[in-house]
């Protein structure tokens, strides 16, 4: 055998042994206790938003339980469709987590994307936000009923702050619209913050908004809370009547609000699902995190799997049909097999 041939043979054998070992190792990583390396966490919205804050708050509680670091990156865009598709297209091995909000549940009917949470396994739906309807203190309304009657008397004159179609104020506006004539001027802003700033300055008259962003302004008397979007009074806002007090018909839509959760591709192995579910359940049960959720003005859910699916399904059905009836959808929810509530 020539020298050259020996060399080639030895290289080939080393490579094949290496490959075999590599395959074996990679097979072993699936079988060995997950996770064996860093996990990537993709946050659906940009830095500083509610989803971002919630994601960065839960992760440090979970990392020690998984014995691995979760590296968080913000990948916003397309109202959450970009990150949702990205995680869905990754290998379903549990090494890419989606830290998401409610948005994908509406992507179908809004024509943004056909991937929603039905393609995912809900590791944990951490919390749902509470919404309130607030008004500028210079307005005469003391209750939701007074506001609704004023809208009836002065159609097309009262300005509602909004965050665009599909946003929280828009959906609550659509909910209010189910009670007969509701002709208001929705003025869309870039998000909760800018909308509240406009309300503080008196550039709009009322605003359905997340409790978190408005609570301190309500406490300081700079904004007046008219109603809580819930079916009962909540501890954090004593004395503020629930939406159902004057309008019991709203009960069928509730509980409704933005939510925050952690998701993986539904094709991930069961062992991975179990491991993640346990870790996030335990992390979210930490009293310090529970306190954070309360301070953040949200209601802790800490549910996963089937239990979370029931919630996600109801949320999607209520919201998509509300939007559809208000004429804000591109495709009927029916086309996606979403049942009417």
């Amino acid at each position: 055998m020539k020298r050259r041939e020996i060399l080639i043979w030895s290289i080939c054998s080393i490579l094949s042994v290496g490959a075999a070992v590599g395959i074996h190792l990679s097979a072993a990583t699936v079988n060995a206790t997950y996770p064996t390396r860093n996990i990537q966490g993709v946050i659906m919205w940009g830095a500083g938003g509610a989803t971002d804050t919630m994601s960065r708050a839960i992760t440090p509680y979970v990392e020690p339980l998984l014995n691995q670091e979760v590296i968080l990156t913000n990948r916003s865009g397309g109202a959450g469709a970009i990150s949702t598709k990205y995680v869905h297209h990754r290998k379903p091995d549990g090494y890419t987590l989606l830290y998401g909000a409610e948005n994908p549940q509406l992507h179908g009917v809004l024509g943004l994307s056909d991937v929603d949470y039905r393609e995912f396994y809900a590791v944990n739906v951490l919390a749902r936000g509470i919404s309130v309807i607030v008004a500028h203190p210079d307005t005469p309304w003391r209750s939701l009923k007074e506001l609704m009657e004023d809208v009836k008397n002065r159609p097309g004159e009262i300005k509602m702050g909004s965050t665009g179609p599909g946003g929280l104020p828009y959906v609550i506006g659509a909910m209010l619209g189910t009670q007969g004539e509701f002709d208001i001027i929705p003025v869309p802003f870039d998000g909760d913050g800018p909308a509240i700033t406009a309300l503080l300055g008196g550039h709009v008259d009322f605003l359905p908004s997340g409790y978190t962003a408005t609570s301190e302004h309500i406490r300081a008397g700079r904004l007046r809370a008219l109603a809580v979007v819930n079916d009962q009074e909540i501890e954090l806002l004593p004395g503020i009547p629930p939406l159902t007090q004057d309008y019991p018909a709203f009960k069928k839509f509730l509980p409704w609000g933005p939510f925050y959760g952690v998701f993986i591709d539904k094709d991930a192995p069961d062992s991975v699902k179990t491991k993640l579910t346990e870790a996030f359940h335990q992390g979210a049960s930490d009293p310090a995190f529970e306190k954070f959720v309360t301070d953040f003005g949200a209601i802790q859910m800490n549910v996963s799997g089937e239990e979370a699916n029931v919630f996600l399904k109801k949320w999607q059905s209520v919201t998509t049909w509300l939007l559809h009836d208000a004429g804000a959808t591109k495709t009927s929810p029916e086309a996606f097999g979403i049942e009417r509530p």
Partner: peptide
């Protein structure tokens, strides 16, 4: 905006009463 998020996590309520 991000710093406000940080205040929340550290248990301070950002707002006019802060």
């Amino acid at each position: 905006a991000v710093i406000i998020g940080a205040l929340f996590i550290h248990g301070i309520q950002p707002g006019p009463l802060m």
